[in-house]
Computed example of a mutant assay.
Amino acid sequence: MHESPAAKRARTLFDLVSIGLVVVGLTIIHYTNYHYNVDYHILLQFAYYLPVIYAAMRFGPAGGILSSFVITLLFIPLMTHFQETLTPAAKYTQWVEVGLINVIGWLTGFLTEEERKAKRKYQLALTVQKELVEKLKREGRERERLEGEIRQTERVTALGHMSAGLAHEIRNPLGIMKVSIQMLRQEKCDDEVVSEYCRVLLEECERLNRLVNEFLSFARPKELVRQRITLGKLVDEGVRLIQPALRQNHIELEQARCHVDLQEVEVDSDQMKQVILNILLNAIDAQGQGGVIYLEGVQRDGFLGFAVSDQGPGILSEAMPYIYDPFFTTKENGTGLGLSVVHRILDQHGGKITIGNRIEGGVCVEILLPYPRGDKGIVNRSPVPH
């Protein structure tokens, strides 16, 4: 437990006053009772060891030496008073006692200081050991994270090649089907039943075409076209695109403004808008109808970005390790490519994504981007509005 400076000063003052009072008290007893026999005074003389030992233990060698020296100065006049009545052996014993008081003061202080030094060395070694253990743990976690990202990249690459092949194989017959349905619809425009079937088929063709485009976008990422833009402006542009979906699901987006919004990032704006859209659409899908989605700027070591929190049911613990895998989805009509695309785009930007369940329910997604070269981050002072 660490004491405050004021408490340390108060304790030091109390100890000094206590030691002084004991020494003064013993000296007064000695000088006011000089008529007692010599044995009585020798007994009181031994009592001087107590303040000397305590001063040495409390203040180290300086406390022991100073207190024993003061006691010697106070004691010598009384000792010389008894010189006429003492035998040579008793006189010798008196001077030895005075010397012992000084030796004990110095020795106790010295031993106390050595014990304190050993304790400080032990505390330092313990602190260094703890730091090394924490460093090893951090390095282990970082190694596991990097190994996971490498495996994820390998899976994404393999599935990307497969997706590209499948998309090309599907697109050609899909185009023929779409043209054929349109021609059939024109020829049978008077037949309401056929026209309805053709409308449904065209909608499904469009859905398949969007799915094929997603596959191609996932399989063949575009080259980044970086430009500097403030984080707040980038997020606002993505939020504008998602407003219809928010209104359709009667969901309120609570966006917290802070100094992070004024920081610049160097990104491909179009691809980052896709990241924002995917994250917010996932939050809307998880939330269902009604409720609030929270959006705020965040800052971490060397990174800045935004966090999206929803009030949905959260992610099952058994599904969490697979959420970035291509084609893994818990949605009934999902493709399983949303978070995979987000992960790939952020990886291209040197950023990262973290997803976790909130204690109060729902999911929190953090999107982090590195500072532009030459820029330094500032300390995050913004509160979290949850």
Rank of each mutant, 00 (worst) to 15 (best):
Y322A: 04
G105M: 09
V275I: 04
P313T: 05
H349Y: 05
H349M: 05
E131M: 09
L86W: 15
W95N: 09
S67G: 04
L111A: 14
V194I: 15
Y197F: 15
V342G: 08
M79N: 10
D15T: 02
D15S: 06
K121N: 05
I29C: 10
F59I: 02
V292M: 08
I276Q: 03
I276K: 03
L339T: 04
G374Y: 06
Y197L: 14
V22T: 11
N209Y: 05
L280P: 01
E187Q: 15
H343M: 07
L304A: 01
R116L: 11
R210V: 01
V98K: 05
T230H: 07
E360M: 02
A307F: 00
P321M: 05
V225E: 08
M162E: 11
Y48F: 15
A7N: 06
S18Y: 12
V292G: 01
I170G: 00
V239A: 07
T85P: 00
A125W: 05
V156R: 14
A283W: 03
V128Y: 14
F303Y: 15
R151A: 10
E252F: 14
G291S: 04
F46G: 13
L13N: 02
K222Y: 05
T329I: 08
K331F: 04
N357I: 10
L208Q: 08
F328I: 03
N102T: 13
E203G: 11
D310S: 08
P313M: 02
G374Q: 02
G377N: 04
V22C: 08
L74R: 06
A283M: 07
S217F: 13
Q123W: 07
C198E: 02
T80M: 13
L368T: 03
T354N: 14
E97A: 15
G165L: 12
G334P: 11
P244K: 10
K352P: 00
G350C: 09
H30M: 15
A125P: 00
P313A: 08
L78D: 02
L146N: 09
I251T: 07
V17T: 08
D270P: 00
C364M: 07
K117H: 12
M183T: 10
E296V: 06
Y54E: 11
R199N: 12
S317P: 00
P385W: 00
L16K: 10
L100W: 04
K376S: 09
R120V: 13
E264Q: 10
R116P: 01
I242K: 01
G334A: 09
G232I: 00
Y294D: 08
Q274S: 14
G297F: 02
L132R: 10
E115H: 06
R228G: 14
V38Q: 14
E142H: 06
I359H: 11
T354S: 14
H30I: 03
L50E: 03
P61E: 14
R143A: 13
E84I: 09
M320G: 01
P385S: 10
N357H: 08
I104F: 08
I42S: 04
H2A: 12
S18H: 08
T330F: 00
P372C: 07
M1E: 13
Q243M: 11
I150N: 10
N380Y: 11
E360L: 07
T72P: 02
Y322T: 03
L339G: 09
T93I: 06
I28K: 12
I170H: 01
E206N: 06
L107K: 11
M1G: 13
G350W: 04
